[in-house]
């Protein structure tokens, strides 16, 4: 009796892209892109089995709780969702994670972090946005700071970063500020991405394309 299993791993998800092309556009090898597909399949079928990562699935992976609300996780999801259609497709997932690769260009990491902090997507990090992000962090943590203290910290940060003194941080000011404070982009590097093929060895049996190096 013939049986076609629709959940076969040979059936690619919507938005699937050729690993060879994704590898050519990112720091990943073809093998690593295939390994990331294993991870993508797991994440994208954790709640809704449609092969697309929904925000709840992203939050579930990050916090083990699909209902956890977090301003920054929301922002990262929105940046991964390049097409702005409410889901992360495989190509978007790989290209975005590529920025977090230890070998990714520093400029890309700096630019990604800027967009993360530019909450209202105006092309600038504004004082109110910065304060909003500090308040959001305090809300989710046990840190307690007085309003005066928060104001002083935001003022000091702006005084240091907003060198043009126009009340907002532009991309050039951000680059200069990061060069003085490299720790600001330490979250932009995920060491896990160097060992991705070790974490997901199951792809090896099915790999279709050899790495060029």
């Amino acid at each position: 009796m013939g049986c076609f299993c629709s959940t076969s791993k040979n059936v690619k998800t919507p938005g699937y892209e050729d690993p060879t092309i994704l590898a050519s556009e990112t720091p990943f090898t073809v093998s690593e892109v295939e390994a990331l597909y294993e991870l993508f399949l797991k994440l994208s079928n954790s709640i809704i089995e449609d092969g697309l990562i929904h925000k709840e699935e992203f939050q579930l992976a990050l916090f083990r709780n699909e209902n956890e609300k977090n301003l920054f996780a929301d922002r990262i999801f929105d940046l991964f969702d390049v097409k702005r259609n409410g889901v992360i497709e495989f190509g978007e997932f790989v290209r975005s994670l590529g920025v977090f690769h230890p070998n990714a260009a520093l400029e890309d990491k700096i630019a990604f972090a800027f967009r993360l902090y530019d909450l209202r997507q105006t092309g600038y990090i504004e004082r109110e946005e910065l304060k909003e992000m500090v308040l959001a962090l305090l809300h989710e943590s046990d840190l307690v700071l007085s309003d005066d203290m928060i104001e002083a910290i935001v003022d000091k940060t702006f005084k240091d970063a907003d060198t043009k003194d126009d009340g907002r941080i532009d991309q050039d000011e951000w680059k200069a500020f990061v060069s003085q404070h490299p720790s600001l982009i330490k979250n932009m590097t995920l060491p896990y991405l160097k060992d991705i093929t070790l974490a997901f060895p199951s792809f090896i049996a099915r790999t279709e394309v050899e790495d060029s190096e």
Binding site: L39, K42, L43, A61, L62, F63, R64, N70, L71, F72, A73, D74, R75, I76, F100, Y117, L130, K131, M133, V134, A136, L137, E140, S141, L143, L145, M149, A152, I153, V154, K156, T157, D160, H181, S183, L184, K186, N187, L190, Y192, A199, F200
Partner: peptide, 27 residues
């Protein structure tokens, strides 16, 4: 406490939402 040496972006980076390592756990 020397809070005037604290950088707002460094404080923000403590957020759990910035830590993507959860994506790679339980694999």
């Amino acid at each position: 406490k020397p809070c005037n040496n604290l950088n707002a972006f460094d404080i923000i980076s403590f957020s759990s939402g910035f830590d993507l390592s959860g994506l790679f756990e339980d694999t």
